[in-house]
Simulated scan of single mutants.
Amino acid sequence: MALITSETKGVFVIACTPFTDNGALDTASVDSMVDFYYEKGADGLTILGMMGEAPKLTQAESIEVTKLTLTRSGDKPVVVGVSAPGLAAIGELTKAVMDLGAAGVMVAPPSSLRTDDQIIAYYRNVVETVGKDVPVVLQDFPLVTGVQISTKVLGTIFEEHPSIVMLKHEDWPGLQKISDLRDAEAKGRRRTSILCGNAGAFITEEMQRGADGAMTGFAYPEMMVDVVRLSGEGKFDEAQDIFDAYLPLVRYEQQPGLGLAVRKYVLAKRGAIASAAQRRPGAALNALAIKEVEKLIARQTAKLEALN
């Protein structure tokens, strides 16, 4: 399996982790979910991220999910989230998943980091721990981690560590960060791949700012695939039309604490996974929320039919 590089582009769907209704790993649904994502046009997957409920898995389960996903993915690249409070756990899981054939690992900063120097030192320690031959995705998601990483600090980290080949951009607001990073590259700094999260809520603007694609878990990956493709062709108005049809559901997913429940419900409805269950603790949609989601899906379908 090929490794990710600073030139990696496209849509890497952040995959959920399927569970049965009693909270056990649903291995059959891992296969059906992987097939679903690739059938919808995904270029690769990212597993064991925040959407993958990684903190609720044991180390053995994390390795099992990785093995199942890699086996089903064939030659498609799979990035594995290895974020953990301690570097020893990051190093152990990284070695295991890279030995299995992962395309790279993703690391978010721990919430304990407070200063620029601490952030820079942390990623220096990460690279030393996992090895300079392992491609790393730096996850910049301050809304969840509470860690604010400036463009200047990102530049310092990228210059110091060529093995950090990708930024998972989830700052909000963060469009200017993309522009500033690309401007710095135009002035001579090495290139870094930028794939964006936040459920694709800003994907049309992100692509026009210079992003290389999406790395997020919206339950209609075909939207992101179409928007990235059309944007790459310079068809920004067409990309916006596609995005607009999905926007109400994208917006609904942004509710803190409920987004994963919405995504898993939709994925189950679409046949990607057998159950919408989350491992405890985890929120579930009540009858009224399900009614709202169903209404949004129906309106979305009608808008897409009108476009076609």
Rank of each mutant, 00 (worst) to 15 (best):
N22D: 14
P256G: 06
A96H: 10
K187A: 13
A54G: 08
A84D: 01
K235T: 07
R209S: 13
S163G: 06
P162E: 08
D31V: 13
A199S: 10
A28D: 12
S231W: 00
L93P: 02
T204M: 14
P281H: 09
E53Y: 03
V82M: 01
F141Q: 08
F158C: 08
V227I: 15
K264N: 10
L48N: 09
I63A: 13
T156S: 11
R251E: 05
T129K: 12
G257Y: 07
R72P: 13
L195M: 06
D226E: 15
T204D: 14
E7T: 12
A239D: 05
G23F: 06
D133G: 07
D43P: 06
P135D: 02
C16S: 08
V250L: 10
I157P: 01
T145F: 09
F158E: 07
L267E: 00
V266L: 14
K40H: 08
P142S: 13
N198D: 02
D180I: 12
L113H: 07
D171R: 12
E222H: 14
G197M: 04
G197I: 01
V293S: 01
N286V: 09
D21H: 10
G174K: 03
S275P: 12
Y122Q: 08
P18E: 08
A284I: 10
L296F: 02
M51T: 15
T151I: 14
K152Y: 07
K152C: 09
V250E: 00
